[in-house]
Lab assay of single mutants.
Amino acid sequence: MSGNGNAAATAEENSPKMRVIRVGTRKSQLARIQTDSVVATLKASYPGLQFEIIAMSTTGDKILDTALSKIGEKSLFTKELEHALEKNEVDLVVHSLKDLPTVLPPGFTIGAICKRENPHDAVVFHPKFVGKTLETLPEKSVVGTSSLRRAAQLQRKFPHLEFRSIRGNLNTRLRKLDEQQEFSAIILATAGLQRMGWHNRVGQILHPEECMYAVGQGALGVEVRAKDQDILDLVGVLHDPETLLRCIAERAFLRHLEGGCSVPVAVHTAMKDGQLYLTGGVWSLDGSDSIQETMQATIHVPAQHEDGPEDDPQLVGITARNIPRGPQLAAQNLGISLANLLLSKGAKNILDVARQLNDAH
């Protein structure tokens, strides 16, 4: 009898209710805020589980004197976190989706994509230029951005401005803007500013005609071990179906173009009346040469937790077992079709030249 009692006690200790789920994140304040929001949602869904947040620095956090596009290494903000995932030191990792490459290392998958916040870019102005827009900034004003995508589009749109690289986390960039006289304004992701509670610093939100956004911008991705079915089931509740389908289309477009950090590629997606609209573009580094096109596809946005595919093969690095396969494939095909259209119009040449120029500098 006593033996059975011990077995029952052991089973209770090993039951999922007692389990601590370890969540990996970057150390920056924004990353911690984003991770806290994901953990809060998981806690609400699984009140019996405990969650421990483990923060670590990544290569991208450490190399702050070089433009991201020049470092010449993929997975700048993800490699150390993936290493911890691989060694079973954490069970899942919360990322900004735009930091996750469209091809993940073997053994990993994006197990959830959370509801997207505003994906557009924002302009934050130096205190002396508050009330201005990019259009009304004085001639030769210097605007800071760490992104080739932003610089290429904005140089084309605002030729009277000069664009220079600015690195560091959000706090560091804002301090550089406010305390030094080098920059009249800087460009940042609206979602990051909003998550930090800095709505009052948003001086201008850039519309798609001015600057399309990065693939996955404004959404959070939760990376897990691809074979860890328990954790895949656990994080599945975080999937937002519309965000998922938009981001599958965007990531398929980028992957098929073979774009990345070192080339200016941008997108804009919208879901309306059962249609998914995808606009994508590529630019030369100075913005003088560009190709942009829009395509659409009829896609039914499923309700969360309709029964999805059981075999769960990944699409552009994403596993969404609780979302039907048909809409996911339709979104992926839309991204591939748009990429093929741009490639047929000469996108590869623009991107190759951009890559060579970026590598040469």
Rank of each mutant, 00 (worst) to 15 (best):
V20M: 11
V20I: 10
I21W: 10
T25P: 01
Q29D: 12
T35A: 11
D36H: 13
V39Q: 08
A40S: 09
L42K: 01
L42Q: 01
K43Y: 08
K43N: 11
K43I: 12
S45I: 15
S57K: 01
D61K: 05
D61N: 01
I63R: 10
D65P: 09
A67G: 09
L68G: 06
S69A: 08
K70F: 10
T78Q: 09
H83V: 11
L92E: 01
V94D: 03
H95Y: 03
H95W: 01
L100T: 06
P101V: 08
P105H: 11
P106E: 14
G107L: 09
R116I: 01
R116N: 04
A122E: 05
F125I: 13
V130E: 15
G131S: 11
G131Q: 14
T133K: 09
L134D: 01
L134Y: 01
L137C: 06
L148M: 14
R149Q: 03
R149P: 01
R149S: 01
R150S: 04
A152W: 10
L154G: 10
F158Y: 14
R164P: 07
R164N: 11
L174S: 06
D178M: 11
F183C: 08
L188K: 01
L188S: 06
A189L: 01
A191Q: 01
R195I: 15
M196Q: 15
W198S: 10
H199T: 06
H199G: 09
N200A: 12
V202K: 07
G203F: 01
L206F: 12
E209Q: 15
E223K: 01
D228R: 13
Q229L: 09
D230A: 05
I231A: 15
I231V: 13
L232F: 11
L238W: 04
D240Q: 14
T243M: 01
L244D: 01
L245P: 01
R246S: 13
E250M: 01
A252G: 06
F253S: 01
F253R: 01
F253L: 09
R255N: 04
E258S: 07
S262A: 15
V267P: 01
Y277Q: 01
Y277W: 01
Y277I: 03
T279F: 09
G281L: 08
S284C: 10
G287C: 05
G287P: 01
D289C: 04
S290R: 07
I291A: 13
T298Q: 08
I299S: 06
A303K: 14
H305R: 05
V316I: 10
T319Q: 01
A320E: 11
R321F: 14
P324Y: 07
R325E: 11
R325T: 08
G326W: 10
Q332H: 15
L334R: 01
G335R: 01
A339C: 01
N340G: 11
A347T: 14
I350K: 01
L351N: 01
V353N: 15
R355Q: 13
L357Y: 11
A360I: 05
